[in-house]
Amino acid sequence: MYTQELDVRSADSTPATDPEVLTQRFLARIDAEQKIEPKEWMPARYRSMLIRQISQHAHSEIVGMLPEGNWITRAPTLRRKAILIAKVQDEAGHGAYLYSAAETLGVSRDELIDQLLSGKAKYSSIFNYPTTTWADVGAIGWLVDGAAIMNQIPLCRCSYGPYARAMVRVCREESFHQRQGYDLMLHLARGTPEQKAMAQDALNRWWWPALMMFGPPDANSTHSGESQRWKIKRISNDELRQKFVDFTVPQAKFLGLALPDPLLRWNEAEQRHEFGPIDWDEFEQVLKGNGPCNAERLAARRDAHAAGAWVREAASAHAEKQRLRAARCAA
């Protein structure tokens, strides 16, 4: 009965080499909601698009440690300091999960880090804004991590298995980030008039950049079509942005803070909030490297990489010594 397998093979199982046939099979698997795994055949564009997206995502996590890391030594209490350290450590972890996911596509983490340090790779523009007060730590957790969650939840169902699995882990941890941020804002909003003013000022500065995190409007989004066809991206930039606004408006109201948008209003007929125009010129400028902190962020990453070189070298030397010692003992 086992020999049946040898001669009765369905047409689908014949190994194909024709790219046309392979593409059709690949698309059929995508349509059937099957996950694509590392060693399977995939279109070259699918692979390169994923490498670009996952590595940018990883870089964003790593660079994202900087604006908040800025406040670790100045956190107002030990409790807040412990929370902030845990959050920044999580961001490093998220970067590591994502670099691992990118590596399954045949690129090495070293190459990706080189691309970041050389300025060739992009990362989320939001991290090129400065954190000028303690309230910014709250605004980032609430708004920036909130927007990130909104983007990342649909990615848990993306067609590429390793990316989807990394996103599941990231989303689980990200919820703590958003809640600690809101909790921080709530304490400031209920504090002294100065504290409340500081929270309002942070909200004023982070609101628009947070809306830009969802990317350009659908009409101008260059990669969206293919990405949606391949089920990497499942929900459009504008839809996610709208959802974020609808979620955030009542949260801001509860804080007693005002969103800095005079055109913001509820549209009863469409059951959604209308909001004012986003300054896409600013977005383009920050993307091009002309944001308030682009140069500073990259310089900080390069310095950290160079300053950590001796640690990596020492660890390698130690590992080599241990390996030789073990080999000698065995001999």
Binding site: D90, G93, A96, R165, R312, A315, H318, A319, Q322
Partner: peptide, 23 residues
């Protein structure tokens, strides 16, 4: 649960502790 880079097995365990068992 995933993968990581390390100089040797001992470091791999330590990194795995930090990376995959923070909670």
């Amino acid at each position: 649960v995933g993968s990581l880079h390390a100089a040797d097995e001992r470091m791999a365990i330590e990194h795995a502790r930090d990376l995959y068992t923070r909670r």
